[in-house]
């Protein structure tokens, strides 16, 4: 299967990456090799097997509905690239 530049551009868009022309070429080439390598898994017969999303077989891990104190806003927002002290600032989002 061929990985085209268009595929890379679509994927980059989905994952919010801006790639230069060179990068698109480079990743298309890398991906071509990696996907060819990844296709090895199709040589393995997995008929009748369930998927494992987890390394362990536990389930029903719940938390009680008990309020914990929220974080200090200043501490939580100390890393914000842009804020007015109470909320994060972004350019206008027009829908």
């Amino acid at each position: 299967m061929e990985i085209t530049k268009k595929d890379i551009e679509h994927i980059a868009n989905l994952s919010m990456l801006n790639l230069s022309e060179d990068e698109v070429d480079g990743y298309a080439k890398d991906m071509q090799e990696i996907i060819a390598f990844a296709n090895q898994i199709n040589e393995i017969n997995t008929d009748g097997l369930e998927e494992s999303a987890f390394a362990l077989d536990s389930y029903n891990v719940f938390r009680k509905d008990e309020v914990r104190e929220s974080f200090d806003r200043e501490l939580l927002m100390q890393n914000a690239p842009s804020s007015n002290g109470v909320a994060y600032q972004i350019p206008p989002v027009i829908e």
Binding site: N84, A87, Q89, I90, P91, P92, V93
Partner: peptide
Amino acid sequence: LVHDTYTGGTLV
């Protein structure tokens, strides 16, 4: 998301 009348931007 709230419109920020002060800056014209959006607040989260």
